[in-house]
């Protein structure tokens, strides 16, 4: 497959030695791209490096002057101490369980809802879609008290249900994303499938979903990331120390009168790893979509 954006040269020359120049040019270009990448990567890596440096320092060394970008002596035991202080493993496991069910919920609801908005004509569609988008505008804080009352009345406090259930109704962000994605799929696909005898759901599940893998990947990775970083909802809905999630655990390093920055950074870094590992594997799935059709067809 050709790589359009990197673009070999305009027009392919049949002349042999011209091809060598093209190749040298190509090598230089690749090198140049790598150089750019490494520079930008460094820029993006600064926070991690800084966090690592902080995590390895003694508690008050962080505030020394002149500011020290490297610890005088790396204190790796901060990591052990962080995990001893707060049961981080347990919290990671709890969070993973919540994520698992949320992902199922999103994968169930999002494609269905999006499919209707992207492909069907029905009364109230425009208004309803505006409502999908507008729910994203409302900050969670405004909804906390009524939702909390509701969950207390249903006896769902201190369970994971308040965290998981909304995922089964589809998160507006993902619905919107998926609608935009499906809308870019040519209708010919649907028509062809309909002629083959598939009904609406068949079209969704057999034809469109396999093409939506990039959007679904984003749904999964973002669900993971957002749940991992969620603080307010677990705080409000969970009571038992054993059921807490990652972010609640991280907040435990912030004491009444001071913050143990080195331990907090050590714990934050460690808990970031799973997210990055997931993303490392998930981003391979960002390839696909309509672009693959050409290969198959």
């Amino acid at each position: 497959m050709s790589i359009p954006l990197k673009g070999q040269n305009k027009g392919i020359s049949p002349v042999f030695n011209k091809r060598i120049t093209v190749n040298i040019k190509h090598v230089i270009k690749t090198l140049f791209i790598h150089l750019c990448m490494i520079l930008i990567a460094f820029f993006f890596l600064v926070p991690i490096l800084w966090m690592l440096s902080t995590a390895l320092k003694l508690r008050w060394e962080i505030f020394a002057w002149p500011p020290e970008w490297l610890p005088r002596e790396p204190h790796w035991e901060n990591f052990r101490e962080a995990f001893k202080r707060v049961p981080m493993w347990g919290y990671m496991w709890n969070t993973l369980r919540i994520i698992f069910f949320k992902v199922i919920g999103e994968l169930f609801a999002v494609p269905l809802v999006a499919y209707a908005f992207a492909r069907f004509r029905f009364p109230g569609k425009k208004v309803l879609f505006l409502l999908v988008i507008s729910t994203m505008m409302i900050p969670l804080q405004t909804k906390l008290i009524p939702l909390f009352s509701m969950y207390v009345r249903f006896g769902l406090i201190d369970s994971y249900w308040p965290l998981i259930l909304p995922a089964f109704t589809g998160t507006p962000f993902f619905i919107f994303l998926m609608v935009q994605y499906i809308k870019t799929m040519p209708r010919d696909l649907d028509d062809a499938a309909r002629i083959d005898g598939l009904n609406n759901y068949g079209i969704l599940y057999r034809i469109l979903i396999p093409l939506c893998v990039p959007a679904l990947t984003i749904t999964v990775t973002y669900t993971f990331l957002w749940t991992w970083n969620e603080f307010l909802q677990p705080l409000i809905y969970l009571n038992s120390y054993e059921k807490y999630t990652i972010q609640l655990g991280l907040e435990m390093f912030k004491g009444m009168w001071s913050v143990e920055w080195n331990l907090l950074m050590a714990a934050t870094l460690s808990t970031m790893l799973p997210v990055l590992v997931l993303y490392f594997f998930a981003q391979k799935k960002l390839i696909g979509g309509i672009a693959t059709l050409g290969l198959k067809g």
Partner: peptide
């Protein structure tokens, strides 16, 4: 039943519960 929570979240949680009148 001792419920230990992060200091930083106590205020929000209390206000929510007191405001709800339940829980």
């Amino acid at each position: 039943n001792m419920i230990l929570m992060p200091v930083s979240g106590f205020e929000t949680k209390m206000t929510t519960a007191l405001g709800s009148g339940v829980g």
